[in-house]
Write a protein that binds this DNA or RNA. Structure first.
Lengths: 200, 200
DNA sequence: TATATATATATCAATTTGATATATCTTTAT
DNA sequence: ATAAAGATATATCAAATTGATATATATATA
């Protein structure tokens, strides 16, 4: 439901094309904790115009045609009413997490270390973007909106801290649970062995 | 793609019913950073059996029928090969974030404070679960898997810290960006006014 | 003993993604 | 000068996924 609303939110800062909106959720601030795909974006824009929440301004500068969208009065009211409603609980899909949670002690730990280092690189890059953005960007967001960037900053820093911590604990082979890895892996190893045998 | 794999991952710890698997992504550890719906779960189980990754054990204890699924040898191999592959970048949908990023300085800040307090309650509850889980749970996860719980713990703590910080900055009305709220809001206010007038 | 909640399986319409197609404009390399 | 590559821009569609709903039994609670 809130894909429509996040479109209204982006447009509220300035009239935008579909491409502008997508870019906002791709490279920019809004994309840190939200996403949108072309497959839903363009049909939604059409629908929002039909419903009177946004209006279409067709521009033609030197033969270059663009479709700009901007909020109508109805759109402003709807946006404000949505902002006032309690946000839905966040949803995450983090393959790194589920892989670690499902990790087997008998597996090669260096593979996991590789995953962690790769994530650290990704997150560091995003953190650099956020830090740069916070310093340079003054337009295009309200002073309250800056809190969102701080949110991203703290979460990314927590993630990087955890990766460091985890890599250290893996290296020392003194795992935080303080349990004997071999003992934990045995049950699964046995079931694996049986399953492989049953496959013939 | 990895919905199938996360099913294999859950089953690798013990043979489970569809309901067991769903519960794991609802109330338990695996659900902290991953989700799955019945609509994809049951069809996927069927498909995974057809493809030979899992096998079905139909049980009938005192008239109570259950369908237990367990990994085949092929399933174990597939799971391990998936775990070794670099995880997809995480995807998040956080309405709280997008609402704050789109907040207008002229809007009632107490509404936002309410949103933040509600989220704090939700997150504190999950954090309590994670802390309790870390202390009591010794089975059902490897020592490496414990790192995932620490991940959850650190991210939740970062979020709670940010909420505290944000509520304080809102209360003091000395917003972190150090900018004049009225100045920032003006452009949008003007566009809003025009849009409302145009609607007649 | 009635009621509510938990366990268990399953389907389906509606939503959403991810891939792909097309075309123009701008920057970079030769 | 021009060819190639990359960015800008709109759009659609098959496949994946969700969220709601239906159904039934077992167990805990009032």
């Amino acid at each position: 439901m809130s894909i429509e609303h996040s479109i209204l939110a982006v447009i509220s800062f300035r009239p935008s094309t579909g491409y502008d909106i997508k870019a906002e959720f791709e490279h920019k601030a809004a994309g840190l904790f939200w996403g949108i795909s072309y497959g839903s974006l363009y049909p939604k824009l059409k629908k929002l115009v039909e419903q009177g929440y946004i209006s279409l301004i067709e521009t033609d500068t030197e033969g270059r045609k663009k479709k700009l969208y901007e909020l109508t009065g109805k759109g402003w009211i709807e946006l404000e009413s949505w902002l006032a409603k309690r946000p839905e609980p966040l949803s995450i899909k983090d393959e790194l997490f589920i892989k670690i949670a499902a990790w087997h002690d008998e597996m090669d730990i260096s593979l996991l270390a590789g995953h962690l280092r790769a994530r650290a690189e990704e997150s560091q890059e995003i953190l650099n973007f956020v830090k740069g953005w916070k310093q340079n960007n003054t337009s295009y967001i309200s002073s309250v909106g800056m809190l969102a960037m701080r949110y991203a900053e703290l979460k990314l820093e927590a993630e990087l801290l955890w990766i460091e911590e985890s890599l250290a604990s893996i290296k020392k082979e003194s795992l935080p649970a303080g349990q004997d890895p071999k003992k934990l892996g045995e049950k699964q190893l046995a079931r694996r062995k049986t399953a492989l045998k049953a496959d013939k």
